[in-house]
């Protein structure tokens, strides 16, 4: 359905307005540096897109250009291996836009964040998550049977914000056949503020062959979610939406459904 394709595109193109502010601890010049405003794609990861931000702030700090960057929002360090959109939905939503985020170059909070020092590290993490999603969806994993250049194409597609390039390969991971119209299990993670994420095995169909909806998935994994705000990709997905469809269309590039459950 052409409608589904347009939804995929719309989700890929989604960006969020961010207001980057240099942490006061980092400032070594007399003048406070100007903040940096930018639109950041929801699908990417922060460590991949901070070049311009760094260049902007480097004038005002004495730290080396290759210092490891980390970000926080109102004191909470942001997990840089989560997609930007997920972080935004967790912390920024319903607040003032643009979303204000503080930039740090020192005092990396070792106990709270994982190091992702380079682009390669992010790539490794991305591919790892992708393979995990693949093994959940398919009995015989497709990713391991792909050529190296296909893996590269997925990564470069994500890195350079190229929808066609990415989906040329990702399509195969989202395909189902008429004999087997469902994934084995749905790759999803439920995030809540200040709690570890929830990930369990859930099939997209019940014993009777009926498609499971988002409502049913939440009932099974987080029963008290019914009176809380549930967001995926920044919108309140309707409860009757089938999760098979959600997995095919609302997943992030790592093929996982990242579901944010917030207190009302």
């Amino acid at each position: 359905m052409s409608e589904d394709r347009e939804i995929l595109r719309e989700l890929w193109n989604g960006q969020v307005p961010v207001h980057f502010v240099l942490s006061s601890e980092e400032i070594t010049t007399v003048e406070t540096p100007q903040p940096y405003f930018a639109l950041v794609p929801r699908q990417t990861y922060f460590p991949l897109c901070l070049e311009k931000v760094n260049r902007h702030f480097l004038k005002s700090t004495s730290h080396a250009a290759n210092a490891e960057v980390w970000l926080d929002w109102e004191g909470t360090p942001l997990r840089l291996h989560y997609p930007v959109g997920v972080l935004f939905d967790m912390y920024a939503n319903e607040g003032i836009l643009p979303w204000t985020v503080t930039v740090h170059y020192t005092n990396f909070p070792e106990s709270e964040l994982i190091h992702l020092p380079s682009r390669d590290a992010v790539e490794a993490h991305f591919m790892f998550t992708l393979k995990e999603a693949d093994s959940l969806k398919h009995k015989n994993t497709l990713v391991s049977n792909m050529q190296k250049k296909d893996h590269k194409q997925l990564w470069t597609g994500l890195l350079n914000d190229r929808y066609d390039q990415f989906w040329a390969i990702n399509r195969k991971l989202m395909e189902t056949s008429t004999e087997n119209p469902f994934f084995r299990y749905i790759p999803f993670r439920i995030y809540q503020p200040d709690k570890p994420f929830i990930q369990t095995l859930v099939r997209p169909v019940d014993e009777e062959g009926r498609r499971l909806t988002l409502e049913q998935l939440l009932k099974r994994t987080l029963p008290d979610a019914s009176d809380r705000t549930v967001k995926i990709q920044g919108i309140r997905v309707p409860e009757q939406t089938p999760i098979q469809w959600l997995s095919e269309h609302f997943s992030h590039p790592d093929n996982f459904l990242h579901i944010c459950v917030l207190d009302k």
Binding site: E3, F37, A38, K52, P98, D161, A168, G234
Partner: peptide
């Protein structure tokens, strides 16, 4: 969903269309 996506666009992108994007558009290919 379609309607909400449209709102999301308005809220998060349209109002901030003057901001630069953090992604570098270098020559890509499919």
């Amino acid at each position: 969903i379609v309607e909400q996506l449209s709102h999301r666009f308005e809220k998060e992108m349209k109002n901030f269309s003057s901001l630069p994007s953090t992604v570098e558009r270098d020559d890509w290919n499919a």
